[in-house]
Write a protein that binds this DNA or RNA. Structure first.
Lengths: 202, 202, 202, 202
DNA sequence: GATGAATGAGAATTCATTCAT
DNA sequence: CATGAATGAATTCTCATTCAT
């Protein structure tokens, strides 16, 4: 009679431990020992559940992305299926209203991940996959208003603004007026989409 | 007759070495040995010219910022002193026209620095200082058009978009339509500032 | 009614697992986890049936030796009890005809065991015991032809050649002409024993 | 004025340290720390002079082989260039007279290397290269007496006997009559080559 | 100024073994 | 008998920094 498996719970503890330590010390300096300590586990157990440190990071990438998607989905539920403008705002709110201001360590973690994606091919692959999915979702919403031709660039611009707020709020909190991020990006969206839509329509 | 000091040249070589190695391997994995090799110098000499690795990074932060300021200033020369809109576009072009598309390693280096700024207090201080200076410059330009009250938030939004393009182009090149960054942010600026200015003026 | 013991079967699975893994990775790198996996069992069970990793190795030593003895005995059955020359050839064939050419992993395992015997006293003891038994058997056969005085050294020489073929075929397959081992050692035996016997007889 | 390089001396110390420790504990259990201790150096220095543990082993393989070649060459000096039989005996003496009996740790090291060559591709490559060179040298000598057709197999047989003596003397000293190795293999050679030569000539 | 050898403190990772179930 | 989670020591390797020359 084997002991009931608690692997998923343990893996989750470890992933959370990585996020906690990483947001305080960066990925490289997040030693497996400290991750284990933060998770309340022994160091050896980390490598029992994960083949290496990078694998923990990859799970974290997907987990943070999944959380964001859930926030988006939850906001979408309250909106009509054809309210493209409302959905764009909801998308931006989902990322910035609770992302940049609220969950400091998730934002710090995400920015750290972005930087790691520059050189670690597997991290980059995971990062690109989730970014591509988000971008495509936003692009589809934008396309309703301005047409497919311009949608990709405009969506990228809005998404860049979101990512930029993450960076600035993690690296230089205090420089960005508190609570302004979501509103400002929604204004940007309005400016981009209304004038574009107008011109497009003309 | 003492030999003429080549300290400044050596320091520059080392800083450039750090940028090169860092853009390929990140800051933590940029070992002093590799920095020295990239600089064509011996490892020992690095510590003759810099007290520690972090000091090289701090110089690099200021150097990358100075280059950006120069690009801005050069573009300003061609514009009238009262052409606020032109100056905003010039500012954004200075960062994105040559920044995101051209100098890959500088962009990768800058994104890496942003992430390091999250935890290393001295890096954060240097980073914040240059970001604050840039932001204040942009804010002043924006204030001409929309008034001081809203300028900070709007400038922060535009600057966030710039930083976000850096991140995306470094971590996920290919997801952002090539060459679209500068134009999209200028459109954002137009949307933000024209509607704001209009409402402000009304 | 207790369930019927499958201990022997399990032990055999584990020993075979060790041989398989060891022939691919060596003894030290043959982790208990991999041995268990190769045996289709759980890691914990390995230590239920064996007190430690070395004990598995000791059983393997005796098992490989027993297999060789069986091959020798089987070949002896076809020969007259007084055909000393035939028996020597049969002995050599038993080791080399199927040993060096056929069962790659057994040969690799045996060579690995030889090396482990250099430092692990218990492995050495088991190894020496089986080597001594083989040597004494061969020595007795040789003694019939050349007398006791020279038998030990000549038997050792032939046995050394056998062991050497094992090493070469495991470490550098391709350097030894395929299929030549048994014949060459039988020629060696002929040369050694006939000239010795002649001189002895003279 | 840099400190004069002592790299070669250090590398030699480390290689000797590996041989010493390896002959007592095997390759896997020869920890870098102990190698360093045996070499009288700090652990970090080992990795300054060698990229990894395996590189030390590769140098050792070539060094042990070079020593054997030198012993062969020294013995050849005393012989006429056309004395093929004398040269074969000299070759065998060079390996066995001082090899198996005298330099215990070199023999133990070599046997250990043979076993490592089974799985580590780079070790195998280095091992095969030196074995091939030795074999070809012996084959050329043998070919003078028995013709090219049979030379390879006979040379391999004699070389196998040499390697087998190494294994037995390292793993089971006491089972081989002391001092008998060289003579026995020379008798084997005589038996093989004289009967072969006779038949060849007939 | 310059060199590159040297140090020693971590870092990730592996693994035999134990043990609760 | 059986499972597989858990432990903690050991190991290889990296690296900023120092220092003799």
């Amino acid at each position: 009679m084997p002991r009931p498996s608690n692997t998923e719970e343990r893996r989750q503890q470890i992933v959370s431990g990585l996020l906690r330590v990483m947001s305080e010390r960066g990925y490289e300096r997040a030693s497996v020992n400290e991750i284990a300590k933060a998770a309340g586990l022994s160091p050896g157990l980390v490598h029992y559940h994960f083949s290496d440190k990078q694998e923990i990071l990859l799970v974290l990438v997907r987990q943070l992305a999944a959380r964001a998607r859930e926030r988006v989905a939850k906001r979408f539920e309250r909106l009509g299926a054809d309210d493209a403008r409302g959905r764009i705002d909801a998308f931006l709110d989902a990322f910035l209203a609770t992302g940049a201001d609220a969950d400091t360590s998730a934002v710090a973690g995400w920015v750290t991940i972005s930087a790691e994606a520059i050189r670690q091919p597997e991290v980059r692959a995971a990062y690109e996959q989730v970014v591509r999915a988000d971008l495509e979702q936003l692009e589809a919403l934008v396309a309703v208003l301005v047409g497919k031709r311009k949608a990709r660039a405009l969506a990228a611009g809005l998404f860049a603004a979101v990512q930029g707020y993450f960076v600035l709020s993690a690296s230089s909190p205090g420089l960005v007026p508190a609570g302004s991020a979501a509103n400002t990006v929604k204004h940007m969206a309005a400016g981009l989409l209304d004038t574009s839509a107008a011109r497009e329509g003309a």
